[in-house]
């Protein structure tokens, strides 16, 4: 058991003491400094302890649209190089929660969010933080595969890389190839890199989207029901891919498929809608424990299929 898990089962969740050298988290860091910070978290063993054991820490996150709250008071830690599954019945705010982690939630008109989401010790919701920078570090794959139809496969993967580069991207070919290899798509497309992405099958398109997201080397990859639009064979391939990727990336996946969550994830969080129609975190923990020995009755009811 890691230190983190020990603390969790002991019932106390306290943030590791912040050293004085890492001053006020609300201070605006430059993009460059943030990048350094983020890589330190994953790269150095010791540094992990400095910035916290977590890859991402959510504190009392609430978000919704207009007068309506989709999620309320969610506090959760995402651990590095794990797959965390967010499960729950429809309407429990899983997707809304996920989209808060890379500040995509605010792209919808009328949306609001409050709370703290710490990435590498820095609150991504601090005033002055540009969502554009956040999204370089937290990537996303969507439910329905959405490759850009006007771009070739190559260009799709390169799309994110081209953004932050003056002029030509160095080693672009190698980077595109690497991303496609990570997504287990390289062999299938290496001879048709310059054809449109729309010509691929659904499962291939989704792996292309994964490659595209991975190309910019985010610390965390968010996946919003990535296999729900795919056939079972393609779904299995995506799940295998995820177990490969987690060796180097931290993954958070929203799924309505409990079996998938049980197969694939290291930790699971269960969200459920309350009487006020806002989703709350009911229970979280290592996947095995949550599924075999849930602590909350509501969790047990959901897992055993009594509702939702």
């Amino acid at each position: 058991m890691t230190t983190w898990e020990r603390k969790l089962s002991a019932g106390s969740v306290s943030a590791p003491a912040r050293p004085a050298s890492r001053t006020a988290t609300r201070k605006e860091l430059t993009g460059h400094q943030q990048q350094i910070l983020a890589t330190e978290v994953v790269a150095e063993e010791g540094a992990v302890a400095r910035a916290g054991d977590y890859a991402m820490r959510v504190e009392q996150l609430a978000a919704g649209f207009g007068g309506f709250a989709a999620v309320d008071d969610v506090t959760l830690d995402i651990m590095p190089r794990t797959i965390t599954a967010i499960i729950g019945p429809s309407g429990s705010g899983k997707s809304t929660f996920l989209r808060c982690l890379n500040r995509m939630h605010e792209e919808v008109r009328g949306s609001w969010a409050r709370g703290t989401v710490l990435l590498g010790g820095q609150n991504i919701y601090a005033p002055g933080v540009d969502p554009v920078e956040v999204r370089r570090h937290v990537g996303m794959v969507f439910q329905k595969p959405n490759p850009f139809p006007t771009m070739s496969i190559y260009e799709n993967v390169a799309a994110g890389l081209r953004l932050n580069q003056w002029g030509r991207v160095p080693d672009l070919d190698a980077k595109v190839q690497h991303a496609l290899e990570l997504a287990a798509l390289w062999d299938e497309v290496k001879d048709k890199l310059f054809q449109s992405g729309a010509a691929l099958s659904g499962g291939q398109q989704q792996r292309l989207c994964i490659a595209r997201a991975l190309a910019v080397e985010p610390e965390i990859l968010l996946m919003d029901e990535p296999a729900s639009a795919l056939d079972p064979v393609a779904t299995l391939r995506i799940e295998e891919l995820m177990r490969e990727l987690v060796k180097n990336y931290t993954i958070v996946i929203v799924t309505h498929n409990m079996q998938q969550a049980a197969r694939v994830s290291d930790r699971t969080a269960f969200l459920m809608m309350g009487d006020d129609r806002a989703g709350r975190l009911i229970e979280q923990g290592p996947t095995d424990e949550l599924f075999t020995n849930p602590r909350d009755k509501r969790t047990e009811d959901y897992i055993t299929g009594r509702f939702g």
């Binding site: 430059t30 460059h32 540009d130 554009v132 932050n164 580069q165 003056w166």
Partner: peptide, 9 residues
Amino acid sequence: MNKLVWRKI
């Protein structure tokens, strides 16, 4: 100039 700053401009 930092490319990110340029992009924002």
